[in-house]
Write a protein that binds this DNA or RNA. Structure first.
Lengths: 135, 135
DNA sequence: GGTTAATACTACAAAATATGTAGCGATACG
DNA sequence: CGTATCGCTACATATTTTGTAGTATTAACC
């Protein structure tokens, strides 16, 4: 009920071009990560996914899952929980390539990335209880 | 100074695995879109990019550009403005595939997607002045 | 030289999203 | 029954994004 759809107006675009809806959907926080984890671990329960994503809050997780489901990329099965659909598998192949690219990227960063700066990462409201695992 | 880097703690992950940093970076709003537009239009000025993304606010645009630059995916040239780096080109190839997938996705949505629901899209603070173009 | 027009951003308040924690109703097990 | 886990909602707080205005710089143009 909130997922962008081809043929409609989405964030930053009114032409209805499919790619724009995809970019909007996948550009939302946690979308890519959820898809990645589902691809790596196979069908997972809500709570499993939550843990796989480093104890993401159930609120966003549920929102993203609903969107992804509405887009037909994943589905909720009677048994096994959330799983990638046939359509989603094709998308997954693309996402997997991100993994390969990430490795090359990491390599080139080491030697002498453009930055060389310290590169902080995430802040996190407080240093209290960041997750223990992340798959 | 805010871009996630391989080997560090990023949103939802502490293992330092490159893919996690990539998923964090690309999962931020507008990252994918900016890369897409840059790939489609070639080197572009700040203002061009802003227009290409449907009149995105300069604040986020600048933030994302800085992150992408820090990650070595794009660079700011003396002449021509923002452009994709060699490393970024490889990533771009992956993003381009999203376009192909999007077309197939659109097709399967038409016939009888799982949703069939109305699928709202973006809200936008007010209906005032949504952008006129989107590339 | 002075004016006008772009461009690249920054400032800042307001609105949208995400986060974290608690908890509810529904099984599942002993 | 008592206890556990699961899927997910409520809700207050924190973080991000938006939108708009404005500053500083450079490039014509007259």
């Amino acid at each position: 009920m909130t997922a962008p759809k081809p043929g409609t107006t989405v964030r930053g675009s009114q032409t209805g071009r499919p790619i724009m809806a995809v970019l909007d959907l996948l550009g939302r926080r946690w979308s890519l990560r959820i898809l990645w984890e589902l691809h790596m671990s196979g069908p997972s329960s809500f709570r499993d996914l939550q843990r796989l994503c480093g104890d993401i809050s159930p609120t966003v997780l549920n929102t993203r899952l609903a969107e992804l489901r509405e887009a037909g990329i994943i589905e909720l099965r009677e048994k096994g929980g959330y799983a990638i659909t046939g359509l989603g598998l094709e998308l997954g192949a693309v996402i997997l390539q991100l993994g390969d690219w990430a490795e090359r990227w990491a390599g080139s960063m080491e030697v002498g990335g453009p930055g060389e700066k310290t590169g902080l990462a995430t802040k996190g409201r407080n240093g209290k209880k960041t997750s223990r695992r992340d798959s």
